[in-house]
C-alpha cells in the first residue's frame, strides 16, 4: 500500500495485516450483490468509485429501493477514521461491516446467513484459505472487507501536487486555501490535517430541531444532540449532496450555510458564526475545495472490478 507524502502510517489490526490476497478477496466481496438478502445491492451500490466511494443521492438507497435516513459518506481514507458512521458508533472497519449488512434499509441480511450463502461458492472458500488460512466465515468476510477499504487512500489531488511542488494551484484556489486556513473562516479548526478532518463530533447549526440526533444516539447525552463526525473534505466536490441528511445540494449552498452562521442550537459549535464572505471569497473557497478532488483515486483500476 502506497502511503502519500504527508500521510501518517495507517493503524492496522494485528490480525488483519494487509496482503494482496486479503485485499483481493475484500474487493470481490465489496462488489458482490449476494451480500444483500435479495442479492440486489452490494457495498458498491452506494459507494461508487467515480463519486469517491459516496453516491449522488440525497439519502442512501438500499435493497428493494428502500430509502435510508443518511447521506452516503465517502470511503476515501476511511482506514484512518478512529470510529465509523456519522455518530461514531462503529469501533473498527471489521465490526462496521455488520452495520450495512444487517440494516433493513441497506442490505437487510444477517451475518450468519451471508456466510452460509457465500460459503457455498468454492472460489470464496479457496480465497478464504489462501488469505486467512481458514474456511470462509464471519471472521474472513469482515476482515477482508476491512482490508480492501483500508487501501482506499486518496492523496493525489491538485492540492497535494501543489504541496509536493509538482503543480501550482490556480490563483483562485490558492486564495481559497488562504481563506480556508484564515481566522476569518476557521475552516481548518475542524477540517484539519492530512485528511481535512479532526474526526471530532460537532453541531454545525444545520437545524434548530434535529430529527436525526446524531452522536446522542450513541451517548444518550443531550449535549451531543445534532453532533456528527466532521467529514473529510477530500474529494468533496465529487460527493454532493452534503450534510448528514443530504439537505444541501451543492458547494455553494454549503458555503452559504457557513457564511450565514447556521441556525441557533444550544450545542452549535462556537466556530459557526456569520463570516461576512464576499461573492469572490465564496468563489475562491469553492475553487480550493475543488482542488481536493483526486482523479487518480476515482479512476484507479485497483479499486474497480473487471
Amino acid at each position: 500500500m502506497d502511503i502519500p507524502e504527508g500521510f501518517p502510517d495507517m493503524p492496522i489490526p494485528e490480525d488483519n495485516q494487509l496482503t494482496e490476497d486479503r485485499v483481493a478477496l475484500g474487493k470481490q466481496l465489496f462488489y458482490d450483490m449476494r451480500l444483500s438478502r435479495q442479492s440486489d445491492v452490494s457495498c458498491a451500490s452506494c459507494h461508487l468509485q467515480e463519486r469517491a466511494f459516496a453516491d449522488q443521492n440525497i439519502l442512501s438507497i438500499g435493497t428493494q429501493e428502500r430509502v435510508g435516513f443518511r447521506n452516503v459518506p465517502s470511503l476515501a481514507n476511511i482506514g484512518y477514521h478512529p470510529y465509523l458512521f456519522r455518530e461514531g458508533g462503529g469501533i473498527s472497519l471489521e465490526t462496521q461491516v455488520l452495520g450495512p449488512l444487517e440494516a433493513e434499509d441497506e442490505m437487510d441480511f444477517n451475518m450468519v446467513e451471508a456466510v452460509e450463502r457465500l460459503s457455498q461458492f468454492p472460489d470464496y472458500q479457496e480465497q478464504a484459505q489462501t488469505a486467512y488460512g481458514r474456511p470462509f466465515s464471519a471472521f474472513v468476510l469482515s476482515r477482508a472487507l476491512a482490508a480492501f477499504q483500508r487501501t482506499l487512500i486518496s492523496g493525489n489531488s491538485a492540492f497535494d501536487q501543489d504541496q509536493r511542488g509538482e503543480l501550482a494551484l490556480s490563483e483562485a484556489a490558492a486564495r481559497g486555501l488562504q481563506l480556508f486556513t484564515s481566522e476569518k473562516t476557521n475552516c481548518q479548526n475542524c477540517h484539519d490535517g492530512f485528511d481535512f478532518s479532526n474526526y471530532a463530533f460537532e453541531n454545525n447549526g444545520l437545524y434548530e430541531q434535529y430529527n436525526d440526533t446524531g452522536r446522542s444516539r450513541v451517548t444518550f447525552q443531550d449535549s451531543d444532540i445534532g453532533k456528527f463526525k466532521v467529514p473529510s473534505l477530500r474529494n468533496v466536490a465529487l460527493t454532493p449532496p452534503y450534510m448528514h441528511d443530504g439537505s444541501l445540494s451543492d458547494l455553494e449552498s454549503v458555503i452559504e450555510h457557513y457564511n450565514t452562521g447556521g441556525k441557533a442550537h444550544v450545542n452549535k459549535s462556537s466556530l459557526i458564526r456569520p463570516l461576512g464572505l464576499s461573492d469572490d471569497e465564496k468563489s475562491d473557497l469553492i475553487e480550493f475545495l475543488k482542488s481536493l478532488s483526486d482523479n487518480c483515486f476515482i479512476s484507479n483500476p485497483d479499486f474497480a472490478i473487471e
Binding site: F85, G89, G90, L98, A138
Partner: peptide, 20 residues
C-alpha cells in the same frame, strides 16, 4: 468467536452493527 459460541454472530442478530 467461532460459531456455535454464544458470542459469535447470530441469527437473528444479537449485535448492533451501527453502534457496536
Amino acid at each position: 468467536w467461532q460459531s456455535p459460541h454464544p458470542l459469535a454472530s447470530q441469527s437473528p442478530s444479537m449485535y448492533w452493527g451501527w453502534d457496536n
